[in-house]
């Protein structure tokens, strides 16, 4: 694969951004503009909003989830190259070795998942 093969993607990226910009510019051009005080109020079922949500606190569960996501997504990132290389490994006679290495890796992460589960990191009540 040559670097020139990515030229299609470059054209695509430029074209996509241009089209997205063009349609929003169209809406800006043709849409009416009459701002009223009520119209720009954030929607809150008609009552006046109290406090800004951008300073609001939210559940710590989301942070837990984000941390677990990083761990398991890293696992995916490590497992996929292993899976791609499996055929060559198997052909060279390293199949069982590769399998063992992966099993150790997956076992450690499964222990992590079980630990998190037991600690209640995956509960949502």
């Amino acid at each position: 694969m040559q670097i020139a093969d990515y030229s299609a993607l470059m054209i695509f990226l430029v074209l996509g951004v241009v089209v997205a910009g063009a349609i929003s510019a169209l809406a800006n051009q043709f849409g009416p503009r009459n701002k009223t005080k009520q119209k720009v109020l954030p929607y809150e079922s008609g009552s006046n909003p109290i406090g800004s949500p951008q300073q609001m606190r939210f559940s710590v569960k989301f942070y837990m989830l984000a941390i677990s996501f990083i761990l398991f997504d890293l696992e995916t990132i490590f497992v996929i190259p292993w899976a791609v290389a499996w055929k060559q490994n198997d052909m060279l006679g390293h199949g069982l070795y590769a399998l063992g290495v992966m099993l150790v890796f997956v076992t450690i992460l499964t222990i992590g998942l079980v630990y998190e589960w037991k600690q209640g990191g995956l509960e949502w009540d």
Partner: peptide
């Protein structure tokens, strides 16, 4: 209609 409607932005939005 998407093009012809008013684009609004809530107050204090980023």
């Amino acid at each position: 209609k998407m093009v012809l409607k008013e684009p609004t932005m809530p107050a204090n939005a980023n």
